[in-house]
């Protein structure tokens, strides 16, 4: 069994959908040269469940909007002096800016420089977002 120590101060992203951990790490832009980071893949969770976990030492902030979009089933634990001081449950964000890009080749975002890529949640059940500009529906 692989043993990863608990962290004294920092953030633990727990219950990441199994197989999704590396993507979350990359997309959140967590600086692995600055912080000590542990990515635990396919860890046991409950009796039959599996999950990924990311531990970031000495970090106080992550982009919860982006994380909510990437994996809203995950939970975020804030650790201080080895103790969980705050537990954050994620949900799909209503509005996301510059996290995903519109896939419609006819969308103005494909040609206009320096404009934010903005999406609005259409339906949390279907996990679909609508592009602010062209209305293209994207399933995340």
């Amino acid at each position: 069994m692989v043993v990863v120590n608990s962290i004294e101060n920092g953030i633990v992203i727990d219950h990441i959908r199994v197989g999704n951990g590396l993507k979350v790490l990359e997309k959140l832009g967590i600086d692995t040269t600055k912080n000590t980071v542990a990515l635990i893949m396919n860890a046991s969770s409950g009796k039959h469940e599996r999950k990924d976990i990311i531990k970031i030492e000495n970090s106080e902030w992550i982009d919860l909007t982006a994380l909510g979009l990437l994996d809203h089933t995950a939970t975020v634990n804030i650790i201080q002096n080895h103790v969980i001081t705050k537990k954050i449950k994620l949900s799909l964000p209503e509005r996301v800016v510059d996290v995903i890009k519109c896939k419609n080749p006819r969308c103005v975002t494909s040609v206009e420089p320096s404009i934010p890529h903005i999406f609005h949640l259409v339906d949390p059940k279907t996990e679909e977002y609508r592009c602010e500009y062209c209305d293209e529906i994207i399933k995340v």
């Binding site: 419609n104 006819r106 969308c107 103005v108 975002t109 494909s110 040609v111 206009e112 404009i115 592009c131 602010e132 500009y133 062209c134 209305d135 293209e136």
Partner: peptide, 24 residues
């Protein structure tokens, strides 16, 4: 391009009418 009129409206200080933005 689809959505171009919205970009135009954001940057216009006079009324802007969309006279057609792609297939949108």
């Amino acid at each position: 391009k689809e959505g171009s009129a919205r970009i135009g409206a954001i940057h216009s200080n006079v009324p802007l009418i969309n006279a057609g933005d792609g297939g949108h």
